[in-house]
């Protein structure tokens, strides 16, 4: 349980990081953020980079900012900083609630927002939340900067669309539309463990019908999934129990290849996906109704 030898460098600027990436074979290099996923992989020698570039000294990547469009979070911002942020609690209570479901306090002290996005663990909370909130992820490389919608970012198990020479710099989260309802739920063996399955949703109610619902699950398939067909089915309908049940079972049926492992069978994961989608839609609808009546 000791890492294989590697060289180490901790630049203090993004340009310093890009310069070193440019001087090395990117496949031999690992960027380290909080290390809460990478260090276990190094300790178990599942990852054996020749060079570790530690992003921990790049102060420009550690921030939470409010903009006209919403909130921008630097990739190196710790989950603890998100949890402690009044701005996040006020503007994005869904992000806040998902944050405190991640691991335990010492894990959140070190683990970063960008690290969870880049790690793309299928059971991780943040990718699903990024899908539902319509986040955009910004990456830089020597070739320039690009902005990637969350819908395109997560590819499969532990794989994003980032190129090996790209560094994730920030996550942009647009403001929730006024009077939106939201919800987040997960089932785990123990609070703080990776979820077996989780679900999250946002929606609005206008003249008694659902507008712009967004539904995503995690822990069910090779990546966080958004259910566009189920979203279309719900759009323009009343948020009745019957309708929500129908949408939830359609979402569950839409999962192509549910994960199966020591924690849960594929059938159980599909079942849970349906149950949790139903629960988050009901909860989001209640919140949206309260927001509309100003309660």
């Amino acid at each position: 349980m000791k890492p294989a030898p590697f060289e180490y460098v901790a630049p203090s600027t993004i340009s310093g990081v890009l310069e070193i990436l440019g001087q090395n074979d990117p496949d031999e290099v690992k960027l380290m953020a909080g290390g809460q996923s990478l260090m276990p992989l190094l300790n178990m020698r599942l990852s054996r980079p020749a060079l570790v570039i530690d992003l921990g000294k790049v102060a420009d990547l550690d921030f939470i900012r409010e903009t006209d469009e919403g909130v921008v979070i630097g990739a190196m911002t710790s989950k603890r900083a998100v949890e402690d942020s009044e701005l996040i609690l006020r503007e994005h209570p869904l992000l806040w609630e998902s944050t405190v479901a991640i691991g335990h306090p010492p894990i959140r002290n070190r683990g970063t927002v960008g690290g969870s996005m880049a790690q793309a663990d299928p059971a991780s909370e943040y990718p699903a939340v990024a899908l539902v909130l319509g986040a955009e992820l910004v990456a830089v490389s020597a070739r320039g900067e690009r902005t990637i919608p969350a819908d395109d970012f997560f590819v499969t198990f532990l794989t994003t669309c980032l190129e090996p020479d790209e560094v994730l710099t920030e996550i942009r989260i647009p403001r929730l539309a006024p009077r939106s309802g939201w919800a987040f739920q997960e089932v785990a063996r123990r609070h703080g463990d990776f979820a077996i399955v989780g679900a999250t949703a946002t929606l609005r109610l206008e003249a008694g019908v659902v507008v712009d619902p967004r539904i995503a699950v995690f822990g069910v398939a090779d990546r966080a999934l958004r259910f566009s067909a189920a979203e279309s089915l719900l759009t323009g309908q009343a948020a009745s129990d019957e309708m929500i049940d129908e949408v939830a079972s359609q979402a569950a049926a839409a999962v192509e290849d549910p994960l199966e492992d020591a924690h849960a069978s594929a059938d159980y994961r599909r079942h849970l996906a349906g149950v949790l989608v139903g629960r988050v839609l009901r909860e989001a609808a209640v919140r949206a109704a309260e927001a509309s009546t100003g309660a």
């Binding site: 290390g35 300790n43 010492p106 070190r110």
Partner: peptide, 21 residues
């Protein structure tokens, strides 16, 4: 969590941090 220590007042897993950090 057995290896927890405080770094600048924050609890961390000391197995998941490099000494150089």
């Amino acid at each position: 969590g057995i290896c927890n220590v405080l770094v600048d007042g924050q609890a961390v897993r000391s197995c998941l941090m490099l000494a150089v950090q």
